[in-house]
Write a protein that binds this DNA or RNA. Sequence first.
DNA 1: TAAGATATGAATATCACTATCAAAAAGGTA
DNA 2: TACCTTTTTGATAGTGATATTCATATCTTA
Lengths: 157, 157
Amino acid sequence: MKNFETMSYDELLKEFKGILKANALKFTKQREAILSTLYNNPKHFTSECLYLLVKQKHPELNIGIATVYRTLSLLEENGLVSSISLGAQGKKFEIANKPHHDHLICSECGKIVEFENEQIERLQQQIAEENGFILTDHLMQLYGICSECQKKRTKGD
Amino acid sequence: MKNFETMSYDELLKEFKGILKANALKFTKQREAILSTLYNNPKHFTSECLYLLVKQKHPELNIGIATVYRTLSLLEENGLVSSISLGAQGKKFEIANKPHHDHLICSECGKIVEFENEQIERLQQQIAEENGFILTDHLMQLYGICSECQKKRTKGD
DNA sequence: TAAGATATGAATATCACTATCAAAAAGGTA
DNA sequence: TACCTTTTTGATAGTGATATTCATATCTTA
Ligand SMILES: [Mn+2]
Ligand SMILES: [Mn+2]
Ligand SMILES: [Zn+2]
Ligand SMILES: [Zn+2]
């Protein structure tokens, strides 16, 4: 997979157009609107939430939620966005212009902190090897209570 | 949370009854059938799959799938079962009578290998602390291709 | 064992997501 | 540019897993 970490929006767009062309797909206003909204608001988006924001930023497109789902799948398949499954809280998407990282999530307020830890990644690789697996992917999410929510709790009691 | 690792079925049942009583809930044939089926078939069960097995083992109960969902939630809330979310492949449940472990999953055949790694656990704790979080839980799943599926692939090509 | 509670199964609803389809837009060609 | 073919779109209906509703059945305790 290509590394999109340091891409400017123009480069990203060029990359996207290349992927579209390579697959005989078309470059549409909707697809660009979704990509640019993701790029300019680098958060962890619910499909619904991204849909609302694109609608707000580009009201003239009258975008449909089906298109958002379709485009997110397309972008994820091609490595331009990545997603995390948060169980009950649903699935969230983010643009893949950052190095690989995992997530630390506050169970109380939903805050998401990103982190990376090479040592864990190495150990994961080792575990897979020990069990005869070729490691292709992993999911790691840490759940806890963030410092702000800890403070709130103390006050509340 | 209590440690259920070394419990015999009788002990587990006693524990369950205690939880029920403490919450003014009733001990029913359905609830016991579900618990015993989980205990005697220590696998990773889909709700549907568990439902079918309980139905087969206890046809006289004519159990409904709603009861299976309800009971699994109840058991999970009380730490007697734990679940893993496998994205597209759905959610799987297992009885919590083993030490904590994480999962290595074959993307091709769905095989699940359990593992534990103290070193990773320590690093996770450390990461949470560094970010001011109190760690309460974590999720770690490694995805890959198991050795059998690797062999099949080579033959297929 | 009767009273008062919760639990159950069947049916229905919900929720996130996917498929369908007619109309619109893209993009290659001349 | 105008045309033509293909893909894309938004609205809508459909799907599958899980949750809820509700009338009846089953527990628990006195
Ligand atoms: Mn992230
Ligand atoms: Mn397990
Ligand atoms: Zn918080
Ligand atoms: Zn396999």
